[in-house]
Design a protein around this nucleic acid. Sequence first.
DNA 1: CTTATATCAGTGCCACTGAAATTT
DNA 2: CAAATTTCAGTGTCACTGATATAA
Lengths: 177, 177
Amino acid sequence: MPSPPKRSGPRDRANDGLDPVGEAIRQWKAHGFTSQVYMEAVANLNRMSQLLHRAIEDELQPVGLNFPQYEALVLLFFTHEGSLPLGKMGRRLTVHPTTVTNTIDQLERKKLVKRGPNPKDRRQVIATITAAGRRKAVEASDALSGIDHGLHGMSAKDARQLTKIITGFRAAYGDYV
Amino acid sequence: MPSPPKRSGPRDRANDGLDPVGEAIRQWKAHGFTSQVYMEAVANLNRMSQLLHRAIEDELQPVGLNFPQYEALVLLFFTHEGSLPLGKMGRRLTVHPTTVTNTIDQLERKKLVKRGPNPKDRRQVIATITAAGRRKAVEASDALSGIDHGLHGMSAKDARQLTKIITGFRAAYGDYV
DNA sequence: CTTATATCAGTGCCACTGAAATTT
DNA sequence: CAAATTTCAGTGTCACTGATATAA
């Protein structure tokens, strides 16, 4: 069953009874602007991202994490030793180096992660997940799985199709080898 | 032809020769976490959003707009009178009311939009696009069409399929009537 | 009196730049 | 010497909360 909605605008705002994305697309076409098929896909995709982001943040909030914190934590959880140099984390999470510093600061304050030196390369700082961090990573992951990462209501077939199209795009774009 | 890449991480960072998204998915599955199909779709979707956002911002930067500014401007451009109350803009753009205030401030400073009162409802403030604003809206739209809104390289068939799946999701989610 | 509109003050977050210190 | 790693200071932007003034 589809997730019961409730909001459609930014948080709690009604939308004058029409679909703002559909309206934007209609106007784009009505004015004869080009690249209509792509504009339509991107407008829908942006809106979907907005909805997913909110669904995920709402689900993580009671767990006490935001999404970047969750991603960093689960990345550490997934490694053998439960630790990784900060630079490597940034590349894996595709976030800015200073963002990693900030995120690890936040997780360290919550006692979910510890900082430590790397004897092999003394330029590096290594983040290590704590026992509490491991429990939190599982708890948060379970919460996200419970709503299918925000896609609750979508068929597995559609989800697979989505993955297929996007991975194809990313490959053509040169996002990965 | 696909857009030539150049970056893969946040801006200019190399990725240790592997796909960070694929790696996260691989680990998710290796640890037996549930909702794998959806996790995979959302991970890819998030990465795609990141790439699209950067492509669009890079394209708009020489025009002198960021994406929220562009969206507000083109929304006004599309109306008959070239004007709209700020509250209505927020609902159409699905952004927070204070964000509309800020964005209109920015556009007003650039002389692309003017603020004015609404005689019919004196609570409202009406934003009106200027002649320069209209030229800028067309210029920016042309720039975005030139890269297919960031989807340059994707087949029209795939773009249509993407739209179909996402609109289906949004409908089931209750995002629009 | 209640509701709607817009604004402002202030917080928190992330992206980014540029610089610094340390180490390779 | 140059390059890599992390941190810090500071800027800009957006989402959000809570408060305000005004008007419906």
